[in-house]
Design a protein around this nucleic acid. Structure first.
Lengths: 354, 354
DNA sequence: CACTATTTCAAAACCGTTTTTATTGACGAC
DNA sequence: GTCGTCAATAAAAACGGTTTTGAAATAGTG
């Protein structure tokens, strides 16, 4: 049974145009060494047959696939990471402009992630990777550096000898402190994250710098550390508010922690945004729905994805990765969980005593 | 400059094992016609060199890429569709089990989507497509059917001669009405979606059937149509509540519309779940965070993605697409936006008049 | 022991491109 | 005229696999 092939190849084009296939190829890749006449004839044949080169054959010869890869942490089957979906969308849109595509895979553990990257590299299905959710020491980045495979990380790691795109955590927290200081707060607490995380250290540094800039003495009692959960945020908030001179503002390492803190504040009978100001970080959509809507700092995941993709393309095309390191500021999303202090710390303490 | 190639090919393996490359290939593809001795030798060489076949070369000969494609509607750059990210996650996990990958692209319009599918087909970058967010008459599906290219749709269309996975929209809305009727509601409003969407028609049909089953006369004034946005949902809700005999329950085509409606209800000074019951559809995570948490119908996007991927693989491997059509029920996620009516429609009207 | 069937593997052909090399004809210079 | 030179294109050689073909070695049979 002679199954008729329904795909049109370069040979078909060459035959129709009456030239050698090499000539067709050169025309399509703009070598510019063909006469106008044959070029027109070839382009016409291409048009008529609706020819498009086979990516596999092309890649075999050229060694490129025009495809970028990303390995996502597998969701728990419940709710997918909202950040990632926006990030993906940004990547895809950037790629559309350059006629490349995105290969998406998931991994359910660090080891699995490394294995998947390795498989994709060896089977040459992608030209480079975008690595998200980086850790201080990241095994995926180790692998990619060791293999000399192009990639861009979203977020720095301890080692920084590669291309990355990151949000300026330090700057954001400096601005957070500046913002509440401008509202009139002088007792400003910090609910920080675990210091094994790179970003937690950066954010704390920004907090301290902000205090210094505002001329407020750094009080270690106001600087706490908690896990990145609501319950942990709630507990840390309670601790700070029990101080003899409680803070009138809380700057929180993430929105999740801030939401936990808000619950604790409300439970103590205080008004968020009036008695106690709360500032988050992440710009999670849920922050807009809670009561009162959370003032926070936000990085556009969409913009990050688009930019990271563009940077990766540059790296693949030979740009030195060290020339593709970008630090961008996070923007303040002003909602309603902040405001001028209505009470002094002493008054706050008294109202809590009741 | 003789750039040393750092990729290991089948020739390297063959040389190391002292056999012809054809033999290596047959061993790796389990032809079972090689002696145990040479097979071991070859596998050992493969192991030692860390050899993995080039996907491009392999595909060139076999005509398959082991990659599925999906073309997403491009987000607006603001918030990506939470449904899609979960759906993607489901697909990716299913693919992981079968050593295939997923190619993701975006399209910003119907025409663009068709063009992207066409490009991917012709450049043979994927073996098949998963088509989401189907419309009554879907140009993408037209294209794929015409090209005879394998695909699975998430959602039916007018034409149903292909593989699909769909939630039983009609049934869900029938159950929604049954649910609120059981709570004691008799004036039940419907905030429907644009009727160009197939699912909107199905959901409306379920609503009407539910009324019939409950023995409630269908009042066209209670059945409205809105776009799938919060603002549109809010407006539709206001319109219905201004009726002389306002509804005490609103069944909404999507969670987004329901959330908009809730905002409008609150703004009118009414208590959600007491004065007016609101039922959504989609099971969006955000629904759990709003106040009060939204009662809704949920389809697991994750499960849908995983199942659709599996179905597509079957179709690619030759199963008749007509044998891969599945209708699954949506489940009621009971939260707090519903309850027995506290007021009659007349009382509701009066309290609004104030 | 001659003869055939079976197993095992080497060699060659092929997939659809890109890239390199060769060939052809036209043209100008000597 | 003959000889390069140059432009344009044809022809051939990769690229890295899979699949087909066929030959040699081995086993089985009368």
């Amino acid at each position: 049974m002679a199954r008729t092939k329904n795909t049109v190849t370069i040979d078909d084009v060459a035959r129709l145009a009456g030239v050698a296939k090499g000539t067709v190829s050169r025309v399509l890749n703009n070598y510019g060494d063909t006469s106008a006449k044959t070029r027109d004839r070839i382009l016409q044949a291409v048009e008529r047959l609706g020819y498009q080169p086979s990516s596999a054959a092309r890649k075999l010869k050229r060694g490129r696939v025009d495809t970028l890869g990303i390995v996502l942490p597998a969701g728990d089957g419940e709710h997918a990471d909202p950040f990632l979906s926006e990030f993906l969308d940004g990547i895809a849109q950037a790629l559309d402009l350059s006629d490349r595509d995105l290969l998406v895979t998931t991994a359910h553990s660090d080891e699995h992630a490394v294995a998947v990257h390795d498989r994709l590299i060896r089977s040459r299905k992608v030209d480079g990777f975008i690595v998200t959710r980086t850790q201080g020491d990241d095994p995926r980045i180790e692998l990619l550096l060791q293999r000399g495979f192009p990639f861009v990380a979203h977020g720095r790691t301890r080692n920084t000898g590669f291309a990355w795109y990151d949000v300026d955590n330090e700057r954001a927290f400096l601005e957070a402190v500046r913002h509440v200081a401008a509202l009139g707060h002088r007792r400003i607490g910090f609910l920080g994250g675990p210091t094994r995380m790179n970003f937690a250290i950066q954010r704390r540094a920004g907090y301290r710098k902000g205090l210094e800039e505002a001329g407020i003495a750094h009080d270690p009692a106001l600087e706490s550390t908690c896990e990145l959960s609501e319950s942990s945020g709630a507990e840390a908030a309670r601790t700070l508010l029990r101080l003899d001179e409680p803070p009138t503002a809380l700057v929180c390492v993430t929105d999740t922690v801030a939401i936990g803190a808000m619950g604790a504040i409300r439970a103590l009978g205080l008004a968020i945004g009036r008695d106690v100001t709360v500032i988050g970080y992440d710009g999670l959509p849920v922050g807009a729905y809670i009561d009162p809507p959370l003032t926070t700092f936000s990085q556009s995941a969409h913009a990050a994805g688009a930019r990271a993709a563009r940077m990766l393309i540059d790296v693949i095309e030979g740009v030195d990765p060290l020339e593709r390191q970008e630090l961008v500021p996070a923007d303040l999303v002003k909602r309603s969980s902040d405001g001028p202090p209505q009470k002094t710390p002493q008054e706050l303490k008294e109202s809590l005593a009741k």
